[in-house]
Every structure is written in C-alpha cells, then in structure tokens.
Amino acid sequence: MSLEKVRQVRSGRFFRPADLIIYGIIAAAAIALFILFFAIKKDGGLEGVRIFVRDEVVFEYSFESDEYKVFSSCAEVVNGEKLTVNITTEEGGNLVEIDRAARSVRVVSADCRSRDCVYSPPLTGADGFICCMPHHMRILPFGYKDDGKTVII
C-alpha cells in the first residue's frame, strides 16, 4: 500500500454511509438471531422424568409422548388419570405421582421417618430434582444438568 493510500485511509471518516448500511445489516442479523433463539427455545417446562434407585434407572416417563418405560421390578405403575409409580427398595417405599394435566411430578408418600421427599416441591421444570436419601431414590427431570453453581435451600 502506498503512503498516499495510507494517508487517504487515515484522513477518511470512520463511518461512511455504505459502512453504516453494512453495520446495520449485521446488527439486524444479530437481533434476528437473538429473537429466533428465544422463540424456538423451550419454555423450561417439564418434558419427562427418570427415577433412579442407587444410580440405576428404574423408570422413565415422557410428557411429550405420554409413554413410560419400566426398567426394574422395583417400579410398579398404575395408569389412571394420574400415573402413579410405586417404588420399592430394600430400605422402604415411595409413591410417585405423575400429573399429566399439571405436567408435574411429586412424591405423595414415603415410609421413612423424615419424609423430606414428600415435602419437596413438585417438579415442574428441568431445574430441580427430588431426592429420598433413606431409600437412595432420586427423580431427575429430562435435561437436568447439575451446574454445580445453583443450590436450593
């Protein structure tokens, strides 16, 4: 590049009308992509759950397809208006209720002393879980990811 050309570039205005059009197009594209991302993003509702006993999946249910899979004899299902899953472990049992209409999952009874899981809030999204420590039973939503940063008290 000649010195003359360098001088021309330096003396030129940073924003010429044509540049502004290009910047505008990039900004519009960025905004459109941003809107598109949130438009197609799921609303965070509960898509389904997996029930684990001692880190083994014993039951799975999808709200999307309204289908369930039983992977172990320790999970017994009663299919009514609400789906109820009776979990029996060596230490005791939990009755899990899946409410299709409310798209929520909760533990309705447990035969342990603390019954912390019964008092846990129902699962309504992918950001929580229910745990019964005495029975080593956990209910995790589809897509649940422990980011190690969020702690519920």
Binding site: A102, S104, P122, T124, G128, K149, I152, I153
Partner: peptide, 23 residues
C-alpha cells in the same frame, strides 16, 4: 465458588406452590 470472581446461586424454596409457580 471455583471461579473466584463468581458466586453460588442460592435459590430460596418457594413455600407456597400452586402447580405453576417456580420452585
């Protein structure tokens, strides 16, 4: 928190859930 410039997010349980409210 492992990233010292950041913190843990402490979420306080919602004691009145109505099936739609956040946890």
């Amino acid at each position: 928190y492992p990233d010292e410039s950041s913190c843990y997010n402490l979420r306080i349980s919602n004691p009145r859930l109505d099936g739609k409210s956040p946890q």
